[in-house]
Amino acid sequence: MPSESRSVDGTRAEPGWALLFAAWLLTAVAAAGSLFFSYVMGFAPCVLCWYQRICLFPLVLILARGLFPLDRSVVKYALPLTVVGWLFAGYHNLIYFRFVPESLSPCAQGVSCSEEYVKLLGFLSIPMMSWLAFTITALLLVLVQRRPSS
């Protein structure tokens, strides 16, 4: 990937900015939603939720930093976090849908990882929302990286 990018005004000179902005917006909304669930609605986060948050929260700051000026090497730092969070979210969904027995999971004690707290539109559980957010963020970041710079 060429490291130089022309710093001309307008979106056209900065391909990928909109994609990176979308990724940032998504992580910001996800982080806000996660905080809403725990601090406003009072759900206690389970262990797996914490691991996903550890990956999610820094993304909000890191991606924002990459926007001004557009620095597409931000993907290099953001993608590992996204992938790790995505793996935790995937594992969480396996437990949630009982593909993996909860007794073998690290969260058998304390808050249950398979407890259903919310279900939006009939299928969106919290682990599912997390998985979707990480998936889309990862896709967006890959697109940002692949975008030709001129």
Binding site: T11, W17, F21, L25, A28, V29, A32, A64, L67, F68
Partner: peptide, 13 residues
């Protein structure tokens, strides 16, 4: 872009 970013952040918060 900065304005968009700041406005979005404010809307979120």
């Amino acid at each position: 872009k900065r304005a968009l970013f700041v406005a979005t952040s404010l809307v979120l918060v």
